[in-house]
């Protein structure tokens, strides 16, 4: 890759005590109001804490609330969303994320085809994106920063690219532009919502590499939402598993994939096809689907699909409790 960012070995895992959270989510619950005015719960009692330079992965089936979590942290919830409760805490202070957009917070979206303005040049958009963060800089300076950042994310001939329109760039290139834009803001939190899902495999690999390398430039934390367990396992330091709006498991990446405790996490991992596994055995799937969010079951949200569900699972929701070192799981029968 022509990028000047170089990846390096991840830092050794720290113990809890050594960790000082840069940004936290405390007890966040979000509902949506549907067309008929009915509320349904999309996120419940979410607690997260992200360390500087760490990449936190968020996985789960579609509809589990990953994007809602990402948007809530950015203050980008749609109009029909209701934040029931909870706080975003930056460096120990409760903050309003809306006021921090483009300053402490930046975001990369799933669809690079539509995330950039179609009739404005890349340069204008990259300059505008820095305005909130550097209100006193001249446009010329901001443009220069943009050009430098384009080089860093592996885009050759940055000056020329700045005067391009998005349709003149490929999907992979646009996603690089989006990442460059985010890094320019030097955010405390970079939120990436499925940033590689719309890209081809070889381009996905390039972009994942860029995220890995971005740690050299970025002192802030990254929230990396993806439905690809493989990608998350390779890229992230810590992983949160969401199911029907609740965190069912959270652990350091190695721990989560080596010793998953929650039946959902285990099932999800088992579903992932492996290239060198060409046995004729049937592939695994998780029968059933997400529960109806407007009338959630009394007990464990996963009980209807869980092979280990017992009486208590159907009656009382399991709390998210310690299941190992820096490892939490919400299950009555952790594996």
């Amino acid at each position: 890759m022509s990028s000047s960012l170089k990846s390096r070995d991840p830092e050794p895992a720290k113990t809890d005590a050594q960790r000082s959270a840069l940004i936290e989510v405390r007890d966040l619950s979000v509902s949506f109001v549907d067309k008929h005015g009915e509320r349904f719960s999309v996120l419940r009692n979410i607690d997260l804490s992200l360390q500087p330079k760490a990449i936190m992965g968020v996985v789960g089936e579609s509809g589990s609330g990953k994007s809602t979590l990402a948007n809530a942290m950015m203050g980008l919830l749609p109009k029909n969303a209701v934040k029931e409760k909870g706080d975003i805490i930056l460096k120990g202070k409760v903050v309003d994320p809306i006021a921090l957009r483009g300053r402490a917070l930046a975001m990369v979206f799933q669809d690079p085809m539509n995330a950039l303005h179609p009739v404005m040049t890349i340069g204008t958009q990259m300059v505008d994106a820095q305005r909130a963060r550097f209100p006193n800089h001249l446009i010329r300076e901001l443009r220069k920063r943009a050009a430098e950042m384009l080089t860093k994310v592996g885009i050759a001939d940055p000056e020329k690219r700045l005067s391009c329109y998005p349709h003149e760039l490929s999907g992979g290139m646009r996603q690089r532009v989006m990442i460059a834009m985010a890094l320019l803001v030097e955010p405390d939190l970079l939120v990436a919502d499925e940033p590689t899902t719309a890209l081809d495999a070889t381009i996905e690999a390039q972009i994942a590499e860029l995220f890995r390398a971005s740690r050299d430039t970025l002192d802030g934390a990254t929230l990396f939402v993806s439905h690809s367990l493989g990608l998350v396992s390779e890229l992230c330091d810590e992983v949160v598993v969401l199911y029907a709006g609740a965190i069912v498991e959270r652990a350091d990446v190695a721990e989560l994939f080596n010793a998953p405790r929650h039946p959902y996490t285990r099932a999800l991992i088992a579903c992932e096809p492996r290239s060198d596994d060409q046995s004729d055995e049937a592939m695994v799937s998780i029968p059933g689907g997400l529960p109806d969010l407007s009338s959630l079951p009394a007990g464990c949200v996963f009980a209807s699909r869980c092979l280990h569900a017992s009486q208590i699972c159907r009656q009382i929701a399991p709390p998210l409790v310690t299941a190992g070192q820096n490892h939490l799981a919400a299950c009555w029968h952790p594996q």
Binding site: E61, S62, H227, L229, A267, L268, C271, E272, P273, A282, M283, V284, S285, I286, P287, G289
Partner: peptide
């Protein structure tokens, strides 16, 4: 398709 249902379909 989510991985959780993809297996079923492929089977």
């Amino acid at each position: 398709l989510d991985v959780s249902v993809q297996g079923d379909f492929l089977n």
